[in-house]
């Protein structure tokens, strides 16, 4: 049974991964002070992970991934205000709703070239932005959605000012969803996605139902993005229109690109680098950050992404 062994080896956890997650989870207990930014990193990482499922594994370019992030954020906000204050229940409901939105809109990105997909996803996010803006009685419009009273986590842990509970909540959510995503990409379903991304015609010649797989992974990515949005809404008790803005879609794309696509850890590495650099560079003038980010992208695109990432990737699966 050579094949069985070899396939089992392919999915095994390596020690750098285990060390990483132990550290990330241990950081919940670290001395107060950095939890707020760690929370932001965890949320961005989850958002980038959701894009990796769509772009890195299924090859669908999106310039409007904030649509699902923002939808999840508003969903979680409204659920908290009008349905239940329990964060975990709210998170699950927001994910479910985002998945349904993903399911519906997946039909729009099935066909077409990269360019069409890029425009359609961009348009989707803009449409949602306009809707949120036009319904201030629900979303608070430009003032943002206020008055969320998020209940204690699991009925026991109140969200504190220093963000310890928030980080714990986000990192555990990220971990659980990561393990699930890891299982999914190592499954037969996951391999069929990898095949579709590389050559969808060839994949269908092996009997892979390409469209159904794309719909499924798009809905999954939408659910993950919705979860990230919901985490942001719940841990900050506030949702503003910028959850749907183009900059957020661009940022998450850049985050993923910095970390590398198609290996799940790309989003996490990218989120860490992105947030830490943003923190350092925008302490001077905010324009500095944008400028260096732009320069980095230009250089990265000119030099080629693969060359840079080949180095990092060898250590992880």
């Amino acid at each position: 049974m050579k094949a069985a062994d070899s396939l089992a080896r392919r999915a095994r956890w390596r020690w750098p991964e285990i060390v990483f997650w132990l550290l990330a989870l241990a950081a919940i207990a670290a001395p107060a002070g950095k939890h707020l930014i760690l929370n932001e990193i965890a949320i961005l990482a989850l958002f980038a992970l959701s894009l990796d499922l769509i772009l890195g594994y299924a090859g669908i370019i999106s310039l409007g991934h904030a649509a699902f992030f923002g939808f999840g954020a508003y969903a979680a906000g409204l659920i908290c205000k009008y349905a239940t204050a329990d964060p975990v229940l709210g998170l699950l409901l927001a994910m479910l709703l985002s998945a349904m939105l993903g399911l519906l809109t997946s039909l729009l990105v099935l066909r077409g070239s990269d360019l069409t997909r890029l425009m359609v996803t961009l348009g989707m996010a803009l449409v949602l932005h306009e809707i949120a803006n036009a319904l201030p009685q629900w979303t608070g419009g430009a003032d943002g959605l206020q008055g969320m009273a998020v209940g204690p986590l699991l009925g026991r842990f109140d969200f504190d000012l220093f963000g310890r509970t928030a980080y714990g909540y986000s990192i555990v959510t990220l971990f659980v969803l990561f393990v699930l995503a890891r299982r999914i990409v190592k499954s037969p379903f996951g391999v069929s996605l990898m095949a579709i991304r590389r050559n969808s015609l060839r994949a269908s010649a092996l009997g892979v139902p390409v469209n159904r797989r794309l719909i499924a992974v798009y809905a999954l990515g939408a659910a993950y993005a919705g979860a990230a949005g919901a985490l942001l809404a719940q841990t900050t008790a506030y949702v503003s229109l910028d959850v749907l803005e183009f900059n957020r879609s661009a940022d998450v794309l850049l985050t993923l690109i910095i970390g590398g696509t198609g290996w799940l850890y790309g989003g996490i590495v990218g989120a860490f680098v992105f947030k830490v650099l943003q923190d350092l560079l925008s302490s001077g003038a905010p324009q500095f950050w944008l400028f260096w980010l732009g320069l980095f992208l230009v250089v990265l695109a000119l030099v080629g992404r693969d060359r840079l990432h080949g180095l990092v990737r060898r250590a992880m699966p």
């Binding site: 089992a8 999915a11 190592k186 499954s187 037969p188 379903f189 996951g190 892979v208 139902p209 797989r213």
Partner: peptide, 9 residues
């Protein structure tokens, strides 16, 4: 091919 819950192989 649609089995997402178990490992390939």
């Amino acid at each position: 091919g649609k089995e997402w819950w178990r490992r390939l192989g």
